[in-house]
Amino acid sequence: MGKKKEEQIIYVDSKGKRLDGRKVDELRPIKITAGVIPRADGSAYLEWGQNKVFAAVYGPRECLPKHTASPYKAVIKFVYRMAAFSVPDRKNPKPGRREVEISKVCGEALERAIFVEKFPNTSIDVTVEIVDSNAGSRIAALTAASVALADAGIPMRDMVCGTSVGKAGGKIIVDLDKDEEDASDAVDIPIAMLPNSKEVVLLQLDGVLTRKEWDEAYKMAEVSAMKVYEVQKQALKAKYINGEADANKAEKKGVEEK
Protein backbone atom coordinates (compact mmCIF):
# COMPACT_ATOMS: atom_id res chain seq x y z
CA MET A 1 0.00 0.00 0.00
CA GLY A 2 1.15 3.56 -0.38
CA LYS A 3 2.11 6.07 -3.01
CA LYS A 4 4.57 3.80 -4.76
CA LYS A 5 1.93 1.19 -5.66
CA GLU A 6 -0.57 3.89 -6.70
CA GLU A 7 1.79 5.53 -9.14
CA GLN A 8 1.58 2.37 -11.16
CA ILE A 9 -2.19 2.66 -11.71
CA ILE A 10 -3.08 4.15 -15.07
CA TYR A 11 -6.57 5.65 -14.73
CA VAL A 12 -6.92 6.55 -18.40
CA ASP A 13 -4.61 4.81 -20.89
CA SER A 14 -3.25 6.06 -24.21
CA LYS A 15 -6.31 4.68 -26.02
CA GLY A 16 -8.61 6.68 -23.71
CA LYS A 17 -9.77 3.60 -21.83
CA ARG A 18 -10.43 3.70 -18.08
CA LEU A 19 -9.85 0.94 -15.51
CA ASP A 20 -13.19 -0.67 -16.31
CA GLY A 21 -12.88 -0.15 -20.04
CA ARG A 22 -15.09 2.96 -20.28
CA LYS A 23 -14.23 6.10 -22.25
CA VAL A 24 -13.74 9.36 -20.33
CA ASP A 25 -17.26 10.57 -21.16
CA GLU A 26 -19.02 7.21 -20.74
CA LEU A 27 -21.53 6.48 -17.96
CA ARG A 28 -21.94 3.13 -16.24
CA PRO A 29 -25.09 1.21 -17.26
CA ILE A 30 -28.30 2.62 -15.69
CA LYS A 31 -31.60 0.72 -15.32
CA ILE A 32 -34.73 2.24 -13.76
CA THR A 33 -38.12 0.72 -12.96
CA ALA A 34 -40.98 2.92 -11.74
CA GLY A 35 -43.75 1.81 -9.37
CA VAL A 36 -42.09 -1.06 -7.48
CA ILE A 37 -43.46 -0.39 -3.96
CA PRO A 38 -47.26 -0.85 -3.97
CA ARG A 39 -47.82 0.81 -0.60
CA ALA A 40 -46.06 4.06 -1.53
CA ASP A 41 -47.64 6.92 -3.50
CA GLY A 42 -44.72 6.76 -5.92
CA SER A 43 -41.56 4.66 -6.12
CA ALA A 44 -38.62 3.56 -8.22
CA TYR A 45 -35.82 0.98 -8.21
CA LEU A 46 -32.57 2.06 -9.87
CA GLU A 47 -29.28 0.34 -10.74
CA TRP A 48 -26.32 2.52 -11.72
CA GLY A 49 -23.18 0.46 -12.18
CA GLN A 50 -23.03 -1.53 -8.96
CA ASN A 51 -25.23 0.99 -7.08
CA LYS A 52 -28.70 -0.38 -6.24
CA VAL A 53 -31.26 2.03 -4.88
CA PHE A 54 -34.91 1.99 -3.76
CA ALA A 55 -36.77 5.30 -3.61
CA ALA A 56 -40.28 5.91 -2.28
CA VAL A 57 -42.50 8.97 -2.02
CA TYR A 58 -45.42 9.58 0.35
CA GLY A 59 -47.41 12.74 -0.14
CA PRO A 60 -48.44 15.39 -0.29
CA ARG A 61 -49.79 14.44 3.11
CA GLU A 62 -50.42 15.96 6.50
CA CYS A 63 -47.16 17.45 7.78
CA LEU A 64 -46.46 16.10 11.24
CA PRO A 65 -45.31 17.22 13.74
CA LYS A 66 -47.44 20.30 13.05
CA HIS A 67 -44.70 22.75 13.98
CA THR A 68 -42.62 21.60 11.01
CA ALA A 69 -45.39 22.51 8.51
CA SER A 70 -45.34 25.70 6.43
CA PRO A 71 -48.49 27.66 5.56
CA TYR A 72 -46.88 28.69 2.26
CA LYS A 73 -45.62 25.47 0.77
CA ALA A 74 -45.13 21.72 1.05
CA VAL A 75 -42.15 20.78 3.21
CA ILE A 76 -39.81 18.28 1.53
CA LYS A 77 -38.38 15.70 3.89
CA PHE A 78 -35.64 13.71 2.20
CA VAL A 79 -34.09 10.75 3.98
CA TYR A 80 -31.00 9.10 2.44
CA ARG A 81 -29.84 5.94 4.17
CA MET A 82 -27.36 3.17 3.39
CA ALA A 83 -28.04 -0.46 4.34
CA ALA A 84 -25.44 -1.95 6.67
CA PHE A 85 -24.35 -4.43 3.95
CA SER A 86 -24.27 -1.92 1.10
CA VAL A 87 -20.56 -1.12 1.59
CA PRO A 88 -17.40 -3.29 1.73
CA ASP A 89 -16.93 -2.82 5.51
CA ARG A 90 -20.26 -3.24 7.28
CA LYS A 91 -21.73 0.07 8.22
CA ASN A 92 -23.36 0.74 11.58
CA PRO A 93 -27.12 0.98 10.91
CA LYS A 94 -27.32 4.26 12.82
CA PRO A 95 -27.34 7.17 10.32
CA GLY A 96 -24.05 9.01 10.30
CA ARG A 97 -23.25 12.64 9.60
CA ARG A 98 -22.56 11.87 5.94
CA GLU A 99 -26.10 10.53 5.49
CA VAL A 100 -27.57 13.54 7.26
CA GLU A 101 -25.67 15.93 4.98
CA ILE A 102 -26.62 14.06 1.83
CA SER A 103 -30.28 14.01 2.93
CA LYS A 104 -30.18 17.78 3.31
CA VAL A 105 -28.58 18.65 -0.05
CA CYS A 106 -30.79 16.17 -1.92
CA GLY A 107 -33.98 17.56 -0.36
CA GLU A 108 -32.86 21.06 -1.31
CA ALA A 109 -32.17 19.93 -4.87
CA LEU A 110 -35.70 18.62 -5.28
CA GLU A 111 -37.40 21.69 -3.86
CA ARG A 112 -36.60 23.76 -6.96
CA ALA A 113 -38.18 21.11 -9.17
CA ILE A 114 -41.44 20.60 -7.26
CA PHE A 115 -44.36 23.06 -7.30
CA VAL A 116 -44.29 23.18 -3.51
CA GLU A 117 -46.52 26.26 -3.33
CA LYS A 118 -49.46 24.19 -4.56
CA PHE A 119 -49.60 22.14 -1.34
CA PRO A 120 -49.18 24.37 1.72
CA ASN A 121 -49.30 22.71 5.14
CA THR A 122 -48.32 19.34 3.72
CA SER A 123 -45.11 17.33 3.64
CA ILE A 124 -43.69 15.38 0.75
CA ASP A 125 -41.68 12.53 2.26
CA VAL A 126 -38.96 11.02 0.09
CA THR A 127 -36.95 8.08 1.42
CA VAL A 128 -34.09 6.41 -0.39
CA GLU A 129 -32.30 3.24 0.71
CA ILE A 130 -28.99 2.25 -0.85
CA VAL A 131 -28.70 -1.54 -0.77
CA ASP A 132 -25.43 -1.77 -2.77
CA SER A 133 -22.97 1.02 -3.52
CA ASN A 134 -19.91 1.89 -5.59
CA ALA A 135 -19.42 5.65 -5.77
CA GLY A 136 -22.03 8.12 -6.95
CA SER A 137 -24.78 6.89 -4.67
CA ARG A 138 -26.12 10.35 -3.86
CA ILE A 139 -26.73 11.18 -7.52
CA ALA A 140 -28.23 7.71 -7.97
CA ALA A 141 -30.52 8.48 -5.01
CA LEU A 142 -31.62 11.80 -6.50
CA THR A 143 -32.20 10.28 -9.94
CA ALA A 144 -34.40 7.54 -8.43
CA ALA A 145 -36.22 10.00 -6.16
CA SER A 146 -37.09 12.17 -9.13
CA VAL A 147 -38.69 9.22 -10.92
CA ALA A 148 -40.57 8.26 -7.75
CA LEU A 149 -41.96 11.82 -7.46
CA ALA A 150 -43.26 11.75 -11.04
CA ASP A 151 -44.68 8.27 -10.38
CA ALA A 152 -46.54 9.75 -7.40
CA GLY A 153 -48.12 12.37 -9.66
CA ILE A 154 -46.54 15.28 -7.79
CA PRO A 155 -46.46 18.34 -10.09
CA MET A 156 -42.91 19.31 -11.02
CA ARG A 157 -41.42 21.94 -13.33
CA ASP A 158 -38.81 19.39 -14.42
CA MET A 159 -37.11 16.13 -13.48
CA VAL A 160 -33.83 16.22 -11.59
CA CYS A 161 -30.93 14.40 -13.20
CA GLY A 162 -27.20 14.43 -12.79
CA THR A 163 -23.91 12.61 -12.60
CA SER A 164 -20.61 12.84 -10.85
CA VAL A 165 -17.72 14.34 -12.80
CA GLY A 166 -14.11 14.79 -11.79
CA LYS A 167 -10.53 13.88 -12.26
CA ALA A 168 -8.32 10.85 -11.79
CA GLY A 169 -4.81 10.29 -13.11
CA GLY A 170 -4.80 13.82 -14.50
CA LYS A 171 -7.79 13.26 -16.85
CA ILE A 172 -11.31 14.69 -16.60
CA ILE A 173 -13.85 11.86 -16.42
CA VAL A 174 -17.56 11.40 -15.73
CA ASP A 175 -19.22 9.01 -13.31
CA LEU A 176 -16.24 8.04 -11.17
CA ASP A 177 -16.31 4.59 -9.67
CA LYS A 178 -14.78 3.63 -6.33
CA ASP A 179 -11.31 2.80 -7.72
CA GLU A 180 -11.15 6.17 -9.44
CA GLU A 181 -12.33 8.02 -6.30
CA ASP A 182 -9.32 6.52 -4.50
CA ALA A 183 -6.79 8.06 -6.92
CA SER A 184 -4.23 10.32 -5.24
CA ASP A 185 -5.27 13.31 -7.36
CA ALA A 186 -8.96 12.38 -7.39
CA VAL A 187 -11.52 15.13 -7.69
CA ASP A 188 -15.17 14.21 -7.19
CA ILE A 189 -17.97 16.58 -8.17
CA PRO A 190 -21.55 15.38 -7.79
CA ILE A 191 -23.79 17.66 -9.85
CA ALA A 192 -27.54 17.63 -10.51
CA MET A 193 -29.69 19.89 -12.68
CA LEU A 194 -33.11 20.46 -14.16
CA PRO A 195 -32.61 19.13 -17.72
CA ASN A 196 -34.77 21.63 -19.61
CA SER A 197 -33.51 24.84 -18.04
CA LYS A 198 -30.06 23.54 -17.03
CA GLU A 199 -30.47 25.07 -13.59
CA VAL A 200 -27.96 23.49 -11.22
CA VAL A 201 -29.69 22.29 -8.04
CA LEU A 202 -26.95 20.20 -6.42
CA LEU A 203 -23.22 20.86 -6.56
CA GLN A 204 -20.43 19.68 -4.31
CA LEU A 205 -16.71 19.22 -4.73
CA ASP A 206 -13.97 17.19 -3.08
CA GLY A 207 -10.45 17.86 -4.38
CA VAL A 208 -8.60 20.56 -6.30
CA LEU A 209 -9.24 21.74 -9.88
CA THR A 210 -8.00 24.52 -12.13
CA ARG A 211 -10.58 26.86 -13.65
CA LYS A 212 -9.96 25.35 -17.09
CA GLU A 213 -10.46 21.83 -15.73
CA TRP A 214 -13.79 22.89 -14.19
CA ASP A 215 -15.03 24.29 -17.53
CA GLU A 216 -14.17 21.01 -19.24
CA ALA A 217 -15.76 19.03 -16.42
CA TYR A 218 -19.01 21.03 -16.49
CA LYS A 219 -19.44 20.58 -20.24
CA MET A 220 -19.03 16.83 -19.86
CA ALA A 221 -21.40 16.73 -16.89
CA GLU A 222 -24.16 18.57 -18.77
CA VAL A 223 -24.03 16.12 -21.69
CA SER A 224 -24.08 13.16 -19.29
CA ALA A 225 -26.96 14.55 -17.24
CA MET A 226 -29.06 14.68 -20.42
CA LYS A 227 -28.29 10.99 -21.06
CA VAL A 228 -29.55 10.20 -17.54
CA TYR A 229 -32.70 12.24 -18.26
CA GLU A 230 -33.43 10.03 -21.26
CA VAL A 231 -33.27 6.92 -19.07
CA GLN A 232 -35.67 8.53 -16.57
CA LYS A 233 -38.09 9.42 -19.38
CA GLN A 234 -38.07 5.88 -20.75
CA ALA A 235 -38.64 4.38 -17.30
CA LEU A 236 -41.69 6.56 -16.62
CA LYS A 237 -43.23 6.05 -20.05
CA ALA A 238 -42.56 2.29 -20.03
CA LYS A 239 -45.49 1.66 -17.67
CA TYR A 240 -47.89 3.14 -20.18
CA ILE A 241 -46.32 2.11 -23.46
CA ASN A 242 -46.55 -1.51 -22.33
CA GLY A 243 -50.15 -0.89 -21.33
CA GLU A 244 -50.88 0.27 -24.83
CA ALA A 245 -49.36 -2.89 -26.21
CA ASP A 246 -51.75 -4.85 -23.99
CA ALA A 247 -54.72 -2.78 -25.17
CA ASN A 248 -53.86 -3.40 -28.80
CA LYS A 249 -53.50 -7.11 -28.11
CA ALA A 250 -56.88 -7.12 -26.39
CA GLU A 251 -58.47 -5.26 -29.26
CA LYS A 252 -57.01 -7.73 -31.75
CA LYS A 253 -58.25 -10.65 -29.67
CA GLY A 254 -61.76 -9.19 -29.48
CA VAL A 255 -61.88 -8.87 -33.25
CA GLU A 256 -60.62 -12.44 -33.75
CA GLU A 257 -63.16 -13.90 -31.37
CA LYS A 258 -66.01 -12.42 -33.39
Partner: peptide
Protein backbone atom coordinates in the same frame (compact mmCIF):
# COMPACT_ATOMS: atom_id res chain seq x y z
CA UNK B 1 -27.32 -12.02 -4.81
CA UNK B 2 -29.16 -8.68 -4.71
CA UNK B 3 -26.22 -6.79 -3.19
CA UNK B 4 -22.64 -7.43 -4.30
CA UNK B 5 -21.08 -5.73 -1.29
CA UNK B 6 -22.91 -8.12 1.03
CA UNK B 7 -21.28 -11.48 1.74
CA UNK B 8 -24.68 -13.05 1.15
CA UNK B 9 -28.03 -11.45 0.31
CA UNK B 10 -31.59 -12.25 -0.67
CA UNK B 11 -34.79 -10.42 -1.59
CA UNK B 12 -38.02 -12.13 -0.57
CA UNK B 13 -41.56 -11.37 -1.71
CA UNK B 14 -44.33 -12.95 0.33
CA UNK B 15 -47.40 -11.85 -1.62
CA UNK B 16 -46.74 -8.10 -1.88
CA UNK B 17 -44.62 -7.95 1.30
CA UNK B 18 -41.10 -7.24 0.05
CA UNK B 19 -37.93 -7.50 2.20
CA UNK B 20 -34.16 -7.56 1.60
CA UNK B 21 -31.61 -9.23 3.87
CA UNK B 22 -27.84 -8.97 3.68
CA UNK B 23 -25.11 -10.74 5.63
CA UNK B 24 -21.72 -9.28 6.51
CA UNK B 25 -19.11 -11.45 8.22
CA UNK B 26 -17.15 -9.08 10.47
Amino acid sequence: GVSENADGSARVKLGLTDVIAGVKMV
